[in-house]
Amino acid sequence: MADEPDEVPGLDVPVTMFEDVEDLKAKVVHLTAQLEAIVGGRGSEPGDALAEGEKAAGGEAVDESGDEEEWQYPPFILLLDPPEYDDELRALIEWVEGVLVPGYLAEPSADARWCHLWWEHPVAIARLHAVWLAWQECTDPASCGYTGPSVWHRDHLDPALRELRGSSGPFAGCTKGEHQVDHRLPGLVPSAWTHAED
């Protein structure tokens, strides 16, 4: 060919450099696949980018259609229907009563309210479920590193407890020995929560 030089210079490149380059290619492919999975893939499955990238890098495509389930966004508990709602609420009650109440909730007072029947307050269910989902993610060092618990306390638990236990929170009408739900339920359900038939 006319474009090739007559003389090729001799390069003394260690073999390990080529191995390093291949390792970097594989890492880029893996990170690209993770990014595609997070942002939705735009028309492709999460494993497609990984398989295509590995083929392009000269590697073997890995069949990921096996036992792994596709990742889904967490559900908003108040929009679930039975039996999913019941299962999610049961798991939430176990976490709140087993972890949150004994570890984080002191004796209720006028400034820090709590209702022993908190699961009868939809606002409390929604907030506590969100805190629980964040706890599951933030206590996993694989997803959040070692700062996850600190982030969970600062960004999730503390604000949620302020809202729940405050004087205008869902437990405002609940005092020691008394339980009151009706004070927080709206007269009309917002249209975003129901689909009215025309």
Rank of each mutant, 00 (worst) to 15 (best):
H116G: 14
P122N: 01
S167K: 14
H121R: 03
L117E: 15
R113G: 09
E137P: 00
W118H: 03
W114V: 04
W114E: 02
C138Q: 05
S150M: 06
C174T: 11
S143Q: 12
C138N: 06
P159V: 08
Y146D: 13
H156E: 12
R113C: 03
C115K: 02
D158W: 01
S168Q: 13
A130D: 13
H179S: 07
L117H: 14
F171C: 10
S168E: 11
D155V: 13
P159M: 09
D140E: 13
A172C: 14
S150V: 12
A142K: 11
H116P: 10
H153N: 02
V123G: 03
C144A: 12
L128W: 00
E137V: 14
D158S: 11
R165I: 07
K176A: 15
R165W: 04
P149W: 00
R165Q: 15
L117I: 08
A112K: 13
C144M: 13
F171T: 07
W114H: 05
R113D: 09
T139N: 14
P122M: 02
A110P: 15
A130K: 02
W119D: 10
D155R: 05
Q136S: 06
G145E: 11
W118P: 04
D158K: 01
A172I: 13
D158A: 03
H121V: 14
D155C: 11
S143A: 14
S167C: 14
G173T: 13
E120P: 02
S143C: 14
I125W: 01
C174G: 06
T175M: 15
R162S: 12
G148L: 03
L157I: 13
L117C: 14
T139I: 07
C144F: 08
R113Q: 06
P159W: 03
A126K: 00
